[in-house]
Each structure stands twice: as C-alpha cells, then as structure tokens.
Design a protein around this nucleic acid. Structure first.
Length: 533
RNA sequence: GUCCCCAUCGUCUAGAGGCCUAGGACGCCGGGUUCUCAUCCCGGUAACACCGGUUCAAAUCCGGUUGGGGAUGCCA
C-alpha cells in the first residue's frame, strides 16, 4: 500500500507559517514517496471555524501550489461517525460516562487496564514513590490520585489512570502493606472507590507506551502519568482527539506528520487506535518554528501569517523553498532549490528536532534571488497589484512602467519595493534629507544644476548617451572632475541617492521632467539658493 | 511540582568517535567592478551551554547541571 499522509488544519483564522510548513513537509513527503497527500479540514469547532477561514486556507494552498489528492474531507460531516465510535468504545468498555467538574456527564476514554495485548505497551520495571502522608490516596474507576513529597516536604498532587498502576501497593511508614490494587481491580472498575490516609509510599510495576517517532526516534511515556481523556463533551460534541483518530482511520492515513506540540497527544491517540480496533499509523513530529525572541509564535506576531507574506511581496516559490529549510536541510550545501529538487531530497531522517527561528532577512534574500530570476514580462505581470496600490498608479503608463521595471528588477527584494518607484511617475519627490544635504548643500551646485538644465534643454536626442555627454560637457566647463556632479543630479531628479543608472533614469524621466527638477533643486534646495535665504 | 522533548556562529544549518586549527548560507564588516544603489566577485567576523565520565581519540557516546519548550483542558 502506498503512503497516505494528511494535512489537517483547523480553519479558525489566518493560516500560520508553522502550519503551512507542516503542510509543505507532508506534501514533500507524499510526493517524494509517491504517496497521497490528503487534506482534512477540522472544522468541528463551530464557534471558531468560519467559511472565510476555509476559503483563505484553500487559497493559500493553491498559491503555494500544494496540490492535494482527492477532495478535502470536512470533519464536520463526520459527526455521526465520531459519535458512533464513542458509542462503540462505551459498549466495548474502553470508555465510560462520568461527571467530572461542572457541566454534566462527559464520555471519557480509559487508559486500558488490560494492555498486555497492545504492542506499544511494555513493562518498565518496579517503581517506588515516597508520598506526602497527610494527603489521602484516592482510588476509583477514574484513576489514582496521590501527592508526591517535594524536596521541601510539601505535597505535590498527582493523578494517573488506573492502567498505569499494575501491582500497586500502598505502604505505611512502617512498610506495612495497606492495600493492593490487583485483587481489587474488578470492584474498583465496577465503581467502588477507596481512600487511604497515612500512606508513606507506593510501589507498582510501571507500564510505558513506546513508539518510534519518524523524526525523534524512540519515545516513551509512563501510563501512570497519563489520565483518562474526555472524548465526548457533556453537550455531546466529540473532541479533537476522537475526531482526529476516527478520521485518520477513515482516510487510511499511514503516516501522521505534524508539529512537536502534538507529541504528548500521540500516546493517547495510539491507545485510541487500538481501542477502535485499528493499527496506529507511524508518527513523526516536526520542530516548532519560533519568533525572533525564540518564543513560540502568538497572535501578537502578526507577521507570521502566510497571507501577510503574500501582501508584503513575497513569491510563493521563495516561501515554499525557505520554510522547509526551517528544521530540515538536504544535507549538502544547497539552499535555493526548485520544487522538484526539494521533493527529491526530502526525507524524514533529515528533519531536525530542535526548534527553528524564523529569519526574515534570509527569506528576503531568497525572495530577491527568485525575483531576479523572473522573466521581465512575468515580473511586470506580478508587480501589477503592488503598483496598483500606489498613489501614482494612474500615472504609470505601461510603456514607462515596463522600462522602469526593467531598470529596477535587480534592485527589488520584495514587490512592495515598487513603492520606491514613485519618482518615475510623479514630481512630488520624497527627498531623502540626509542625501540632499550631502549632495546639494555645496557651493556651486545650484549654478551647476542650472547650467546642466540649460544644456539638457537643447540636447538632441535626449537619450542615455546624449545625457551623459551633456553632463560631461557641463562638468568640464565648470572645471569639475567627471562624475563629480552625479550625486547632486541624482538627488535633484529622484530625491534619493540610490537607484538605477543615472543616465538611464533621466532618459526615462524625459527632458521636461528632468530639467524641471534640476531647476527646482537649484532654486530651492542648494546652498545659496533663494529658499535658503 | 510532575512527565516528556530540545541544546553547534546573531539566525538557518553541515557534522552520526579521528577527515573539525568545526564547513555552507543569511546578516554584519572590509575590498574589487560600477556614475550611486542593487547584482556579481574576493576577503573577514562569529559557535560546539556547563561540569564530569567512557576512549589512544568526543561537537559527536554516557551521566549530571543549567537554560528553553511542550504536556499536565469538557482547546485544537
């Protein structure tokens, strides 16, 4: 049977990069192994799941070209199956109804007492725990609760499922056995409860659940540290754990690849698979992506939504290339990789286990590399939406825009950099104060700009070569070195000291604009010009 | 508190006992090309968390400490 993996997001808001990286990893794995990549939308949280969130999820996946196989499965459509599974569990004695806390009776999944037949469960030796004798030990069908003795002699309350305490003995300070669980287990499971005071220690045979994580290797968890889990709320709504496992069985998932925050769930889920009569799939857990503080992303880190990267002018190719590099590497020095190369190189063995910090700088650099590689026509096409949002959009005729795009593409790291193209289309220059001061506030600059403007006014043709010649002629006449005036000209005509080639830029601007700006700068912005008094 | 996981330059990572005076990339600094900026090219900066142990030999194995994260929900 071929591999079947799934991406199972909850559509409760914007799509987060951590989530979409999980999707990318799953997609990469499926495509690498020739398996299926399924999409399951876990929309059972009626309060928070919205059609808008589902639409945006689908949109983001399409944008990143994460094509899934078959139709998406909407978890909400499976309510009846989930409820039936809970009923089955109840009937089989794997679950019980219990009013825990307020809210009425919920259905809890029991960490099984008879776990000998479960391949993932093994005995892990005898355990002796020193207890806080003043806290009573309580035992009933929901589990064992007790209090450990801290170093300071205080009580540290604990509770664990019954199934973790085979061979349990309660001892008093003298070592006398107060109680043995095994002979009493039927009665306890049947609903009787026991309580003991003055228990100094407890001993039992520890059982552990062991599985081999595809990423992290062998992982184990003592059953006595697990608690019975609510699987159906008192209002009748099945919880995530049940729905998730049921649907994984339904979809025939063979590998569950998800974020590190799910490792603890895995132990219970494996038990649920077994109780439902299914063999659990293999599991692999990816390291988390954290923010630049090294902390988990929270709602405050608004930048971490995929949609935001899109509106900021990132290319899907760049994101799809960068994200898998967080927590995974091909093992050689490659970083910029095509989708095909990523698919070919991707293996779970090469996924790391330490959390990875998002480095926007590096992403931006990669984005710049991708932008530089785009054909001019495509670049113009892609930049349209970003140009459209500029105040000068109306002035940007397609011919000029094309020329500008050609000049600026290699200087573009993000599509939003198009905001800097303003001076090509409007005379309302945004002068960089520092650059202006440095380039224009010098003696003689005003006169030089005026002379250049005069020279340019008659230059024919007004093209790159002609402009260069005019500038050279002017500097020569003034006894300036070649290029000495360029910085001043640049600031005068563009407002800034960075940008494409000066002559090319002036040619695009055209004679009229260029001269007007030179004169304006000469009259108003230079040392000794009228505006300066 | 308890359980589980994690730990190499500022960041992403390579490294699965000798190839490591720890490699690459981003960033940063310097230089070259160029009319500026960007690109491109050269060079530099900077890390094995700490303490023990195993070994002829440890970033790599083991133990402990510290630090970080997760779980301990009728959230997903």
């Amino acid at each position: 049977m071929s591999n079947r993996v799934r991406f199972a997001p909850s559509p409760t808001g914007e799509v987060h990069i951590g989530n979409i990286r999980t999707a990318i990893f799953n997609w990469l794995y499926a495509r690498h192994t020739g398996g299926q990549f399924l999409l399951r939308i876990e929309d059972t949280d009626r309060e928070r799941s919205t059609p808008a969130a589902i639409a945006s999820l689908l949109e983001v996946m399409a944008w990143l070209e994460l094509d899934f196989d078959g139709e998406p499965l909407y978890q909400s459509s499976r309510l009846a199956a989930h409820t039936a599974a809970a009923d089955q569990l109840l009937a089989d004695g794997h679950a019980y109804r219990h009013a825990k806390g307020e809210g009425g009776e919920a259905t809890l999944f029991r960490i099984p007492w008879d776990s000998d037949a479960i391949p993932e469960v093994c005995e892990a030796g005898d355990v002796r725990l020193e207890l806080h004798a003043k806290t009573p030990v309580a035992i009933d069908f929901t589990g064992v609760s007790y209090a450990l003795l801290t170093k300071k002699g205080k009580a540290s309350p604990q509770a664990g499922a019954l199934g973790g305490f085979h061979g349990l003995q309660l001892l008093d300070a003298d070592g006398t056995v107060l109680y043995e669980l095994d002979p009493d287990i039927k009665a306890v499971l049947g609903g009787e409860s026991r309580q003991f005071e003055g228990v100094a220690a407890m001993t039992f045979r520890r059982r552990e659940l062991v599985y081999t994580d595809l990423v992290k290797g062998e992982l184990r968890k003592p059953l006595d540290s697990l608690k019975d889990q609510v699987i159906v709320r008192s209002d009748g709504a099945p919880v995530f754990h049940l729905a998730n496992v049921c649907d994984d069985i339904e979809q025939g998932i063979t590998e569950i690849l998800r974020g590190d925050d799910h490792v603890e769930n895995t132990y219970r889920h494996i038990l649920l698979f077994r109780a439902l009569g299914a063999a659990p799939p293999a599991y692999g857990h990816f390291p988390m992506i954290v923010n630049d503080q090294g902390k988990p992303f929270s709602k405050r880190d608004g930048d971490a939504y995929v949609g935001d990267f899109r509106t900021k002018g990132y290319l899907p190719e760049a994101l799809r290339n960068y994200l898998p590099l967080l927590g995974w590497s091909p093992g050689d020095d490659r970083e910029q990789m095509t989708s095909d190369e990523l698919v070919a190189a991707f293996t779970l063995e090469r996924v790391n286990s330490a959390a990875a910090q998002m480095d926007v700088n590096k992403l931006k650099n990669l984005n710049g590399l991708y932008i530089a590689a785009i054909a001019l026509d495509d670049f113009i096409e892609l930049i349209q939406p970003f140009v459209a949002s500029q105040p000068w959009a109306a002035a940007a005729d397609s011919t000029t825009l094309r020329t500008v795009a050609e000049l600026m593409q290699s200087r573009c790291k993000l599509f939003t950099d198009a905001a800097d193209w303003s001076y090509f289309f409007t005379d309302d220059l945004d002068f960089d104060e520092k650059a202006a001061r440095k380039a224009l506030q010098k003696d003689g600059v005003a006169a030089a700009l005026q002379q250049l403007s005069d020279a340019l006014a008659e230059k024919e043709p007004f093209d790159e070569a002609g402009i260069e010649a005019a500038i050279h002629a002017t500097t020569e006449k003034l006894g300036l070195g070649q290029g000495k005036l360029n910085a001043a000209i640049r600031v005068a005509v563009t407002g800034t000291n960075v940008g494409a080639g000066l002559y090319e830029t002036m040619a695009v601007l055209g004679r009229e604009r260029t001269c007007r700006r030179l004169q304006f700068a000469g009259d108003n912005l230079c040392a000794g010009s009228s505006a300066q008094g």
